[in-house]
Structure formats: C-alpha cells, structure tokens
Design a protein around this nucleic acid. Structure first.
Lengths: 210, 210
DNA sequence: TGGAAGTTGATATTTTTTTCACAATGATAA
DNA sequence: TTATCATTGTGAAAAAAATATCAACTTCCA
C-alpha cells in the first residue's frame, strides 16, 4: 500500500472518510467482514455511487462478489487521514462547551489526543479537567510549543476570540477549529474550520420554514 | 409549494446569511451604518464577489458609493431566514454537550428558542436546566406536539441515537441537528444536518498532516 | 455450459458553487 | 465639464461535487 503518498482529496471526501471508518467499526463489531457499497451508502445516507467514487479516489479496490474488506478499508483510511506519530490538540476555553468537547473526545481516537486545555480563570487552571492538564492562557505559547501541539479548538467567549486566535498563531499552531461566533482570518498556511451552532440551527430553521 | 417570496437559495448561501447578520450586528455596535462588500468579505474570510453574489440572490441592492445599508440588510436577512412566529427547538440528551448547547444558545436569537429539553435520567428530569424545562424522554412526543416544536438537537449517547430519532420522527419533527457520532436516515420531508466533532477534528488533522 | 443477477470501477454528464471579467454608476476633484 | 476612482451587479467561465450510465467481472443456478 502506498505510504506517504497522500492523494489530493476533495474536502468533502475527507469528511466522509472519517465517517466511513466510524460506521465500518460498527459493522466489524456486528461480525461483518465484508461490505457492499450500497450497504455503506445506506448507513451513511449516501448513494452507492458516491461511496464507490470516494473509495476509488483513495485507490481502494473491492471485489465484485464480496464487496469491500472492512478491515483493509479501515486500515487504508487510517493511513490516509491519520498521521503516523499522532497529533496533539489543545482546547482553549473551559466553559461548558470546552468541557463537553474535552470529555466527549478524550480516548475516542488513537492518533488524536487532547494534550492540554487552557482557561483564564485561576480557579480552573493548574489542575486536571477531564483527564487533561488545564493551564492558564498566558502559558499558551509555552505549552503548545513544548508539547508540539498542532491543532487548537477555540471555545472562548466572543470578546476574547481575536486575542486568543492571535496567541495561537503566535505559537505557530497549524489548524484551528473555531466554535465561537466570531469569524476568524488566518494566514494561508494555517487551516481553519468555522463552526457555529447558531448558524446550523438557523439554516435548519430556514429549511423547515420553507 | 413555493411560499411567499422565499427565493430558492443555495444551501451555502443560507449558511452565510446567518453569519453575515452576526458580523453586521457587530458593525452596528461599532457605530457603522454602511458597509462595502470588501469589508464584509474581509470579516467573513470570503471574496467580495461572493458577498455581492449572495446579496444579489436575496435581492438586496446597495449603492456604488456607500455600499450596503447595514440595518436594511439585517432586516432583509431576518425576513428570509427567520420565521414570523418564531420556531421552537428541543434538545434531547442533557449530557455535557446538551447542557453546553442549551446554555450557550438560550437568548441568542429572538425567533429561535429552546422550548424543552429531554433526558432519560430521572435525576435530571422534571426540573429546570439552564432556564428550560427538562422532561423525561418518554414524554417526548407529547411535549413536542403540545409545544409545537419543529426542530430537535440530538446529543444522546450513540447507542440511544436510533431509538430517539425514531421517536422524534414519530412526533413529526421537521428538522434534526445530529451531534451524535451515529449517522441517521430520515424521510424526505425531514431536514437533517449531521455534525460530528470527531469528524471535523480528523479533517483538520488530515489537512495539517499534508 | 450458458445465462441471469448483482456488483465494482470508471467515464460521462449534470448540478451546484465559486470565481472572473467588466459594464454601469455615482462621487470627487481638477 | 471631464477625467479618475472605487464600487456594485451580473453574464460567463471555471471549479467542485454529485449523479448517471454502463462495460466487465463473479457467482450461482438451471
């Protein structure tokens, strides 16, 4: 299997790969060893063609009679989306959402771990929250560089967003997942995913209204 | 079944409209009354052309010299994405994430309110959580229909997801925002938005790895 | 042995979304 | 007035994403 050769995948395909793997794990637990594109599609609410297209893009071939070998497929997806050494994540802002994400995520993935969390409230800092050490934000750069953290999840208050984002960029973070309601601008070499709960609810509300 | 004069907007545009409004509110607070497409674009990390295209699609015209009138634009966006009477939302699953979303969202929007939350733990039910009455899930259909709730946010444990989703469909919910890691399938007349935190982190990790 | 059924892989097509390119407009000032 | 400048609005082109179509392969069964 080709190593280090990461194909240039469409963003949507990458998202789906992560989800394929998740449902494939479920299938394995149910005792299945092989799966057809239409089964995977059904589970993911997609068309079989889309599934086959995605798998084609990552260079995986199944057999016409048995479909895809689940464990091989899981392994290949891992090769593509996981990094070999694993990547470390920081969560900045230990409010409700930050805590929820931290406890929800911890232990979910072998190659992705939340290595540190930050807050500006001394009551929360310098102790362990959901199994992760919580530091004061003024140690942000130091800890991120020392731990070699590459990805940050932003769950701070709106008014703090820009400041914290600047600190993260200063600490040379490589990716930011922004849960605040404040849109960010980052340099080209930093990857940014914006996600706001209010936006998705408003989108749904619009669709329902129609 | 076109209702009134809601144009047939691309899904992406709808998402951006919600975000435009948010940053426009900020601009108003800073004392601005007008804004140019390139300013709005900068704040949202978009191109000016995209901004103009979106506004064109909703039928809003600015002036070449002054740009767009912020308060008119906010009002128009409201006409398009808000429903007149407002819409009610239920959050199902009062774990960390459910509580975080409930407290985060409450009061954020005039026309969208969380009217009820549900859990299956008797310790949590029949009391007020973050200002919202919490019911046992076995009252789900009753409460949803009585309160005329149209949208549900799903934050239950993975193993409960399918059951709860079935109950929601049975209660004739119109839209589901799924935060669990279990993909759902819903009838055509129900709108579904899938969102999983692990997926977005894995996508970021992939991009960073490249 | 031959053909029906069901699947994959891939090319072609369509649809959706974004970007380009520029005419038209209004403001400003020489 | 006329030239210049920055802006909007929009048709056209491009890019991205999803879908359709179908040849080729496997297995099964008559």
């Amino acid at each position: 299997m080709a190593k280090n050769k990461i194909p240039d995948l469409p963003g949507k395909t990458v998202e789906r790969l992560s989800q394929y793997r998740r449902v494939l794990y479920n299938s394995i637990e149910e005792g299945k060893t092989n799966i057809y594109s239409h089964e995977l599609a059904k589970m993911m609410n997609l068309t079989p063609v889309q599934v086959r297209r995605d798998l084609m893009l990552i260079g995986y071939s199944g057999s016409q009679s048995k479909g895809y070998v689940i464990k091989d497929l899981i392994a290949l997806i891992g090769q593509i989306i996981d990094s070999e050494e694993g990547e470390k994540i920081a969560v900045v802002g230990m409010g409700n959402l930050g805590r929820a994400i931290t406890s929800y995520f911890t232990g979910k993935r072998e190659k992705l771990s939340i290595a540190a969390v930050f807050d500006n409230d001394p009551q929360k800092t310098d102790r362990i929250i959901s199994g992760v050490p919580c530091h004061h934000v003024n140690q942000l750069k130091e800890v991120i560089q020392k731990e070699n953290i590459q990805i940050a999840v932003l769950t701070v208050a709106p008014e703090a967003t820009h400041n914290v984002a600047k600190m993260l960029l200063d600490a040379e973070i490589k990716g930011i997942l922004n849960y605040t309601s404040v849109p960010l601008t980052v340099p080209e070499n930093v990857h940014l995913e914006e996600y706001d709960i209010v936006t998705s609810l408003e989108k749904l509300a619009f669709l329902v209204k129609k």
